[in-house]
Amino acid sequence: MDPSRKRTLRLVVALGAALILAGALIYTSFSASTEASTPSQVVASAEPGRSYELTGKVARQSVARDDDRLRFVIRDRDGKAAVPVSYEGVVPDPFREGREVIVSGEMKNGTFVAERDSLVTKCPSKFTKEQTVNRGT
């Protein structure tokens, strides 16, 4: 094979590999991602059996412990809609009333039943390093 054809071949192989990587990236990320929903979205259009990532603020005076389960209410940022949440598992350190949290789970009879250990706290006000604490592996 002469050098120039060899170079073209190499270029084609490299571009092919790049395309495969890009394709894999796009395909896997869109299929594996979870949508973040606000309480108002979940209240309006939650389908039973579908998993959502609920994000919003923990409502004041709403946190209660019920044996092993933690119960609290998540509100929209603007405070319009609210969803009661039932959660089991480890609670991250910065979890407080009034803080932004994300929790995954599904709606059952008007209550958002969270997956175990899925609670993540966001803390936008101070240092952002604590954004996502407790992403249990």
Binding site: L21, L25, T28, S29, F30, A32, S33, T34, E35, A36, E53, R135, T137
Partner: peptide
């Protein structure tokens, strides 16, 4: 680096493409 870049910025990318903010987790 590209993989990590894509995953890190995915919430912005998906908001631009599909209109809803979605994110990829550690398993991805």
């Amino acid at each position: 680096c590209l993989v990590i870049f894509w995953g890190t910025f995915f919430p912005l990318i998906s908001e631009a493409v599909t209109g809803t903010e979605a994110s990829v987790g550690p398993p991805w």
